[in-house]
């Protein structure tokens, strides 16, 4: 479990980093937290010729919270973001997702932007970005472009990043007023990749009835699966029975596969169960929610 030889660069300047990466073309990889890349290298499942370590690059270390939302730089560790109270207040789904990302030791090292750029279909943070309709700032030799979340992840471990481009930040917008969010998942062991996970955002009107609802499922599709459930739920309360139809509709769009940890039927079943649970929790967390409209059981 030793990697094949590679050239290693640790630039301090973003333009230099982009230059090195561009030179390497298809054979270059960005190293940030290394929580996925290093195992791939050691198991010789990936063999990039050039590693560009961005851990010393200035300007990527900030968490910025403003009226629009939270902007997370590429060097920000999951644990840093999890501990940032201003970010948590602006976008509660960040913390709800982050606490499900692997284990504390991995969160101490792994970066949120790195997780998004790695685009594992079971990862939580690409789903958080997708559900909130966030975006990724991408820097290449040609300059900076902003890629909407829906266009960023293009397949399992595949993104809109071109060779030579670095994802420098992720932008997580604040949810609309009256919106509650939740993230629930089922994993084999505490901290494992989810067999299925569901994030939900539910917006309630002043009367406590649902005005908008969306969910995002992980581990049941090649990319984070965002489903708009507003048509199913608008005007309804968030009673668990009322949520079942919407949950079933979301699960219908899932396209899970069998693997050694779970069957496809079970994953589809979980998609329904977890969507209902996530919707109920999200509704309960919505600021305008009236307490007695929520009677759903959740864990």
């Amino acid at each position: 479990m030793k990697p094949p030889p590679f050239a290693y660069h640790a630039p301090t300047d973003l333009d230099e980093a982009v230059g090195l990466l561009a030179e390497a073309g298809d054979e270059g990889k960005v190293l940030a937290g290394g929580q996925s890349l290093i195992p791939l290298l050691n198991m010789r499942l990936a063999a990039p010729r050039v590693l560009v370590d961005i851990n010393a690059v200035a300007g990527l270390e900030d968490i910025r919270v403003d009226a629009a939302g939270v902007r997370v730089g590429a060097r920000v560790r999951h644990a840093e973001l999890e501990a940032d109270t201003a970010a948590a207040e602006a976008v509660p789904l960040l913390g709800q997702g982050l606490r499900l990302v692997a284990h504390p030791v991995i969160r101490n090292r792994g970066t949120t932007v790195g997780s998004i750029a790695h685009a594992d279909p079971s990862a939580e943070m690409p789903a958080v970005l997708a559900l909130l309709e966030g975006a990724v700032e991408v820097r290449g030799r040609a300059g900076t472009r902003t890629v909407p979340a829906a266009e960023f992840v293009t397949g399992p471990m595949e993104t809109a990043l071109a060779p030579g481009e670095i994802a420098v930040a992720a932008r997580f917008p604040r949810p609309r007023p009256g919106t509650g969010t939740a993230f629930v998942e089922t994993a084999r062991r505490n901290g494992d990749y989810a067999l299925c996970g569901a994030a939900a955002a539910v917006t309630l009107g002043a009367d406590g009835r649902i005005t908008a609802a969306r969910c995002c499922l992980i581990s049941v599709a090649p990319v984070p699966l965002v489903v708009d459930l507003t048509d199913h739920l608008a005007g309804r309360t968030a009673r668990l029975g009322d949520l079942d139809g919407a949950a079933a509709a979301a699960a219908e769009q899932a396209d899970p596969e069998d693997d050694i940890h779970a069957g496809a039927d079970y994953r589809r079943h979980l998609a329904r169960v977890l969507t209902a649970r996530a919707l109920a929790r999200a509704a309960a967390a919505a600021p305008a929610a009236v307490a007695d409209t929520y009677t759903g059981a959740s864990r």
Partner: peptide, 11 residues
């Protein structure tokens, strides 16, 4: 026995 297998057994 895993949860997936228990689910299948239930069915």
């Amino acid at each position: 026995i895993s949860p997936s297998e228990l689910f299948e057994l239930r069915n």
